[in-house]
Design a protein around this nucleic acid. Structure first.
Length: 383
RNA sequence: GCUGGAAUCGUCUAGUGGCAAUGACAAGAGACUGUAAAUCUCUCGGCUUCGGCCUUCGUAGGUUCGAGUCCUACUUCCAGCA
């Protein structure tokens, strides 16, 4: 179903937006976090568990599903929703990120498209903007992304300039072949940390008139947070108020707050599920001062100190893992490489980020987002 | 009792004259931002002024410039025969 965004309220002190997204009957409030399910599954979690975390949209990946099982198989299964048993909305990434992340492979970016060497069997693959849209159409996601180049943080100004021009041409080509009236199509703003490039990319992308816009090319390799926040604040002012703004691949709790403050509505990130598989739990630490009384903290449940810790991962968390299990149990499962440990931590971490979004929405609603932000970030930024 | 064989870091293991000594697991810790990640990195005898120094390969001797490696005895374990 095509997405409809309604802006409810903009925070006066920051650019934080409280909004509503509708996919037909399904309705969610933003800011919102999207769990990542690259291969048509949020790793180690069942759709029911993802839903219980109160996730709204989830993300799947064009590149991966194109290779396995193939978009035709998914189409034959009745589309991605039916195939993976996810009734909520799905956003598919275009494969643009793989232009960056698979750089270790022989990869050749041309005007026509990108040649990949498959990491599965070495096969030579060629992905074009048209092909990406065609695959996403067949996958039948609710939001399709334009095929873009996600350049590395190390890319220089001239490279970025050429890259975003090409990404714009690709966006236009993709839009031309996008026929699915039930599927939204988003454009992607690039431009690294440069104000003029971000502005230009945003204005040109908006001129193509997409159903929503995203900010990409952020949080790559060693990009520093400052550059990331700049990239966001150089982009959002040029995006229309009545369209959804999606920050791609972010992120850490701190980053969620900082990007919401700069006018972002939704984000996705692999970190809650990946960290979970590596034994880490995102938790709130208690803070002495500040209105939120919270700060970000991360604990590694594999650490020996949790062996006999029979308290929940996080005392005040309402997730399934925290309500039913102890740190000692999760520690034990992770030590034994039992999948259920990763499942419990994934549930917790995703619920953590979704709770963070709930808190941010409440703060915007109650006109205290800036206080919330300072309360949360004061110490996290220092540590 | 006889005849072979074996004893190396918590465990298993490499090592046949230059060795603080291989690899795996375990253990201790770290990284992770549109997922080639249930992965990867570091540490894992002691001390150090980072050049080294000390103590280690069942125990005790011996050969040698030098022994985890060769020799002798002992201890323990394993296999076969009685």
């Amino acid at each position: 179903m095509k997405v409809k965004y309604t802006l409810i309220k903009t925070d006066k002190k920051t650019g934080a937006r409280l909004g509503r997204v509708k996919f037909g009957e399904m309705e969610y409030e933003t800011p919102m976090f999207m769990p990542v399910g690259t291969q048509a599954t949020v790793k180690t979690m069942s759709p029911e568990q993802v839903k219980d975390c109160r996730a709204g949209i989830i993300l799947a990946n064009t590149y991966h599903l194109w290779q396995r099982p193939g978009e035709d198989v998914v189409a034959e299964a009745g589309g991605l929703h039916k195939f993976m048993n996810w009734s909520g909305p799905i956003l598919t990434d275009s494969g643009g990120y793989q232009v960056f992340s698979l750089a270790r492979n022989k990869k050749d970016i041309t005007e026509e498209g990108v040649y990949f060497k498959s990491e599965l069997n070495g096969a030579r693959l060629f992905l074009t903007p048209e092909k990406s849209i065609e695959i996403q159409n067949k996958l039948d996601s609710d939001i399709a992304m334009s095929f873009d180049e996600c350049p590395p943080a190390s890319a220089d100004y001239q490279y970025l300039k050429n890259s975003i021009e090409r990404t714009l041409r690709w966006a236009e080509r993709g839009k031309k072949v996008h026929q699915n009236k039930e599927q939204s199509l988003f454009g992607i703003v690039q431009g690294g940390p440069y104000e003029d490039l971000r502005r230009w990319s945003a204005e040109q992308t908006v001129a193509l008139d997409f159903d929503g816009y995203s900010i990409g090319g952020v949080a790559n390799d060693d990009e520093c947070k400052d550059d990331m926040y700049k990239a966001i604040e150089f982009s959002t002012p040029y995006l229309p108020e009545d369209k959804l703004r999606y920050l791609m691949g972010v992120g850490e709790p701190v980053d969620l707050i900082e990007s919401v403050a700069r006018g972002v509505d939704i984000f996705d990130c692999v970190s809650p599920t990946r960290l979970a598989r590596h034994g880490n739990a995102l938790i709130y630490g208690v803070r002495d001062a500040g209105i939120s009384g919270l700060k970000e903290k991360r604990i590694n449940l594999k650490n020996a100190r949790f062996k006999r810790d029979f308290t929940p991962i996080e005392e005040d968390c309402d997730c399934y893992a925290c309500k039913n299990y102890t740190k000692a149990y999760v520690h034990h499962l992770m030590r034994c490489d039992e999948t259920f440990g990763a499942t419990l931590l994934s549930i917790h971490n995703i619920r953590f980020l979704i709770r963070l979004c709930e808190k941010m929405r409440d703060a915007i609603r109650e006109d205290c987002f800036e206080e919330f932000r300072e309360g949360f970030l004061g110490e996290a930024a220092q540590s």
